[in-house]
Write a protein that binds this DNA or RNA. Structure first.
Lengths: 164, 164
DNA sequence: TGACGGCCCATAAAAACCCATGATAGTCCA
DNA sequence: TGGACTATCATGGGTTTTTATGGGCCGTCA
């Protein structure tokens, strides 16, 4: 499987620990580093997370960009300076740094949202609002999943719908 | 995982000592020289630091440059001539030379910023300002992380944009 | 001698580790 | 099919270890 799916809401205890959903941990289980890399989302009041390996992949792709560009500078300081490596404790929990919690307004509970290769961590209410606005946008712009799938399978040239 | 991640702010005591973050020390732990190589940044009022081994790597790439170029001269004198080897004391601290502190305006506190293969040492306020200007630059030039990531993963040959 | 780097030790706070519990889900067998 | 047994999970709390930070002592070298 190896992709992050579904949404889970877990409690943050008084020490700032949160259980990473077992399903997510299973996705990460083959890796050498038992934990996740987390950074502040550039778009939302939420946190982005991925495996250390995915981060290295990102790191490798970085080297293929023009290193003299300002973008390189930007991405390196933003991503690597702004991310943290959080390892699991014996029970599969991570300890969210205080400023990360503040950034995402996370206090009592944290929502883990699977996003395929990565996942996000939201304050549950903020997530609900965000999903509402997403749905509204989808309606007003007439976006539907089945249409997208139909288009995708045309592009794939096999005429058959392909399962995601 | 052998890359420098995250940002840590530590105090500089009256002797000029600063703890190098434990996570950074772990990255360096496999090396023969227990310490770091530090030099003044060519771009900012900050210090650049890396392992002695990475320094050798830099040295190798320098040799591939045209020795008649201005860059060669600049790098050779500034980086290699101006760098210092600082070893850890028993508690994982380094002693920053006075002129290095002056150069980066470091007095009470020092911010260690992970930059993958290297890290930087900033005066915390200066770092905050620098990050602000980075953000502004990103906005005015319409650089978005997701675009960059998409480009990076294209270069990686997987053809799909990566959602973050 | 006196500034300074190199050591050692002390301490409070934070992080990592270990164990216990209740709840849930999953399995097995009658 | 239903019920008991088991495994897994999220959660909480306590304990140990690590970390950052401060200070002191002692050579060295100008």
């Amino acid at each position: 499987m190896a992709v992050f799916l579904s949404t889970y809401v877990n409690k943050v205890d008084r020490k700032g620990r949160v259980s990473v959903p077992a399903e997510f941990r299973k996705v990460l289980s083959g890796q050498s580093f038992q934990g996740v890399v987390v950074f502040k989302s550039l778009q939302y009041a939420a946190l982005d997370a991925c495996s250390a390996e995915h981060m290295e992949l990102l790191s490798d792709s970085l080297e293929k960009l023009d290193p003299s560009s300002e973008q390189y500078e930007l991405i390196e300081s933003t991503i690597f300076g702004g991310s943290v490596q959080l390892s699991f404790d014996g029970e599969g929990r991570i300890l969210l740094p205080g400023d990360f919690c503040d950034f995402a307004n996370i206090a009592e509970e944290a929502a883990f949202v699977g996003r395929r290769k990565t996942f996000q961590i939201w304050e549950p209410k903020a997530l609900a609002e965000h999903e509402n606005s997403m749905r509204t946008m989808a309606r007003t712009q007439d976006i539907s999943l089945s249409k997208m799938l139909a288009r995708a399978s045309q592009l794939n040239g096999d005429g058959r719908g392909r399962a995601l």
